[in-house]
Computed example of a mutant assay.
Amino acid sequence: MNLLSGMEKFGFSMDGELDILADDKPKKDAAQKTAAAPVVKTEKDFIIDKKVRCPVCDKDFPIKAVLATKLKRLEPDFDLRPNYEHVDKCKYDFMSCPNCGYSALDTTFAKIDTARVKLIRAEFCPSFKPQKETALPETYSYEYSIEKFKLALICTMKKRAKMSEKAYVCLKIAWLRRAQLKELEGNKDADPKIVDMIQKEYEGFYSQAYEGFMKAVSSETPPYCGMASEAVEYMLANMSVHYKKYDAAMKLIARLIQSPSTSRKLKDKCLELKEDIVAKQGAK
């Protein structure tokens, strides 16, 4: 018997037996389905909004930042490019003021002395043309980030930054271009002209980074733009292999293996790289 028959005229069609305890009973099936459903995370889940004050024009501006503590670190590339699950953190490793244009690596943005502020104001700001940006994108695209890193590179040159800082900015751009190339692998719809442009920029900035860091290692006191000397030398050894400069790579590896400050783990990596170089030289 339908105890709520007659309620149809009020718009309620109550089929089946009445059970006022039904809502209090645990819904096992629903709970199990909810628990079993996988949580799919995207880049947006790791991005937050922040405000930063520009040391050049003294104005606040918004940025997108990565919640690094929540990221799962993956195996780095051969040249120590960091990789993370769900997010390419390299895209967010800059700060760029939309008002005056001053841009830099996020680690060096606020570390600018009075003399260099004057250089930026005198040699960079007068030429900078602010762009009309109504709001920041939800996540940074590769093109968006590379554009800002290029501004940062111009700023590092205008403020007479150390060679290691200029080289590091070039390396970041090269890493981003390489990530783009990986994304385009196997994409039949990719424009060959765009792929060619990305490839040339990758090679160009990577070469600048290599030459810049090689000079920095011989002329600056570590750390190099916040990077430990051992990390930079191991990175350069791998970059030397990339350019088939095996003698240069071997010298860097030998120095790392002989140094008492090099960790056991890094020495083991150097020995592996040494074996790889010997194999490549033997294959000639």
Rank of each mutant, 00 (worst) to 15 (best):
Q199K: 14
M7V: 12
L136P: 05
E275M: 11
Y210D: 04
D113R: 03
M214W: 01
N99R: 09
L119Y: 06
K72G: 05
L4S: 08
L80Q: 11
Y168N: 13
V195T: 12
K132W: 08
F94S: 05
M1P: 09
K132D: 14
A279T: 13
S240N: 02
A22K: 12
F12W: 12
A30R: 13
L74N: 06
K59I: 07
E17Q: 12
K159S: 10
G204Q: 09
D79S: 00
V278P: 05
L105H: 06
I277Q: 05
P55T: 02
D268V: 09
V117M: 06
K44P: 04
N238Q: 06
K193Q: 15
P130Q: 02
A115W: 10
A36R: 06
K41P: 02
V40S: 08
M214K: 13
K70W: 07
S96N: 06
P137D: 01
K27A: 14
M95H: 15
K25L: 12
S103N: 02
D196F: 11
P26Q: 04
N99Y: 11
Q208G: 05
K111D: 15
E275C: 08
M14K: 10
I253N: 00
D24Y: 14
K188T: 14
T156Y: 07
V52H: 05
R121P: 06
S229Q: 12
M227N: 14
T139C: 10
D19K: 08
K129I: 12
L3N: 06
K150G: 08
F213G: 03
L266K: 07
K118Y: 07
D247V: 03
V232K: 03
D77E: 12
F46S: 03
K59D: 08
D60G: 05
G6C: 00
V52I: 15
A104N: 13
K33W: 09
A174W: 06
A249H: 02
K27P: 09
K280W: 05
D113K: 02
F124I: 01
A248Y: 04
F61H: 04
D247C: 01
E275K: 15
K51D: 12
K267T: 00
D77K: 07
D58C: 13
K129R: 12
R177G: 02
N2Y: 07
P38K: 07
R255C: 03
